[in-house]
């Protein structure tokens, strides 16, 4: 037991005070979701629901097809994640282990794409995708994912991980007659699982949270992603904050689960650049 220290009490108090503004919007999103119209319009405002008004959740589904939005987002983010993980693994393996002409230059070119903001090239992309007719019906899915099937970020992170791979293991596998393809999928990939998981979590979160691209691309309401759907819910039902917050609360569940249970991987993926 360390001796009690007045400084520590101060630290607790300051942290507690800092937590209030940080946690309040989180709390309010969920508390407001079960508040009836009376609570939300009362004066002075109520911070705690006087009664649990579950009807908000039912009303959300009557206002917008939230289930369908969920499905659309799951397809969009799922396909992007799977595709980026696979292409990143292949590209990273090539950059880490294969001999090829102008490898350094190609890799430099790859990294340079990281500096190009998506917003600066969104117009030609939009024109191309809409020229190809990928903004209507089921083809919308294709339009949503096509520009995001590969990423320099994932390639970079996995290449770093692959480069730390012990060369004795690789030599042993090659001596045992392992070709590149088997070496990659049987040896390198299984031993790099944490890095791959970090890429997957990062890619999934950024795809799931996309806003600009789905906003301009999607023309048919039934192919709307969750993020756009929630923003439209806010526009349509601004007079009923309880209903809007119920929609927010429902849409938060997957990312909340990822943050609570996948924090380790998030930190790994997000700080890969910070730690060098």
């Amino acid at each position: 037991m360390r001796r009690p220290d007045p400084g520590r009490i101060v630290v607790y108090v300051v942290l507690g005070l800092a937590l209030i503004p940080v946690l309040f919007p989180v709390y309010y999103a969920f508390a407001g979701a079960v508040m009836g119209p009376g609570d939300l319009a009362s004066y002075p405002p109520s911070l705690v629901p006087s009664a649990l008004h579950w009807a908000n959740f039912g009303d959300v589904f009557r206002s917008v097809p939230l289930g369908r939005f969920y499905l659309n987002s799951a397809v969009q983010a799922g396909v992007i994640t799977l595709a980026q993980v696979v292409t990143s693994i292949l590209a990273a393996y090539a950059f880490a282990f294969l001999r090829m002409p102008a490898k350094a230059a190609t890799f430099g070119l790859f990294l340079a794409t990281l500096m190009v903001p998506w917003e600066a090239i969104i117009i030609p992309n939009y024109l191309a995708i809409s020229d190809w007719g990928l903004t209507r019906g089921g083809l919308t899915y294709l339009g949503l994912v096509l520009p995001f099937l590969a990423s320099a970020f994932g390639t970079f992170l996995l290449r770093q991980a692959f480069l730390q791979f012990p060369s004795e293991l690789r030599d042993a596998a090659v001596i045992d007659g392992c070709g590149h393809w088997r070496l990659l999928w049987r040896v390198v990939v299984p031993l790099s699982k944490p890095s791959i998981a970090a890429v997957a979590v990062y890619v999934f979160l950024s795809a799931w949270n996309q806003y600009f691209w789905p906003l301009i691309l999607i023309r048919d309401a039934e192919y709307q992603t969750l993020q756009i759907g929630i923003s439209q819910l806010n526009d349509a039902e601004a007079a009923q904050p309880g209903l809007v917050l119920a929609g927010v609360a429902l849409s938060l569940l997957p990312t909340l689960a990822v943050v609570l249970f996948g924090q380790r991987y998030i930190v790994r993926g997000l700080t890969a650049g910070a730690l060098r």
Binding site: L15, A18, L19, V22, L23, P25, V26, Y28, A29, G32, L40, A41, P45, L47, W208, N209, Y211, Q227, I228, I230, S231, L233, N234, A238, P241, V244, L245, G247, V248, S251, L252, T255, L256, V258, V259, L260, Q263, I266
Partner: peptide, 30 residues
């Protein structure tokens, strides 16, 4: 505590903005 401070990270730009839209609402916002 660390997890508590990391919680806002679970919000997308869209969901966080909608929550703030409700909070900032001039007539009935908290």
């Amino acid at each position: 505590l660390r997890t508590a401070f990391a919680l806002p990270f679970a919000f997308s730009v869209a969901t966080a903005s909608v929550v703030f839209a409700v909070i900032y609402n001039p007539a009935i916002g908290i």
